[in-house]
Amino acid sequence: MPDREARMDTVVVGVDNSDASTRAVEFAVDRAQRNSWKVVLVHVIPWTPYSFQTPTENEHRHREKEREVAAATEQVLVPMAEIAERGGVPHTEMVRHGKPSETLSDIAGDTKAVHIIVGRTGDSGLREAVFGSVASRLVQHAHVPVTVVP
């Protein structure tokens, strides 16, 4: 079994709190069953190294980061992983900080993924309306095929 899993292709699925994300994971699990893929569920917490912070924020940043990771794991990754688990698809989970589109693309590279799957709209409505969605950026920048699930 581990041998078989090692030979499987990897797909990266970008997930967040939205309904579109749930549909993306369901879609990914469905295709993973047919194509014998393993899925990497990734939640990216939007973060930039170029923000302006107070000294107190900096002092406690490490603890804050851990808190964000714990919250994302509990609220996003655990429910999404259950979908993959129910579908009987091999899965791993990751939480990262960064610019979502770039980070997903980097992780696809690191995990040698053959495909990235994301929902069309994320959970940050206004921001996306102004700056464009993660999906559209990803489509333009990714080095592997991207599927956008409506």
């Binding site: 917490i45 170029y50 923000s51 900096n58 940043r61 964000e68 900080h97």
Partner: peptide
């Protein structure tokens, strides 16, 4: 170290 205090932020 993404998510921690960056050089820029410090």
């Amino acid at each position: 170290d993404a998510g921690e205090v960056s050089h820029f932020q410090a």
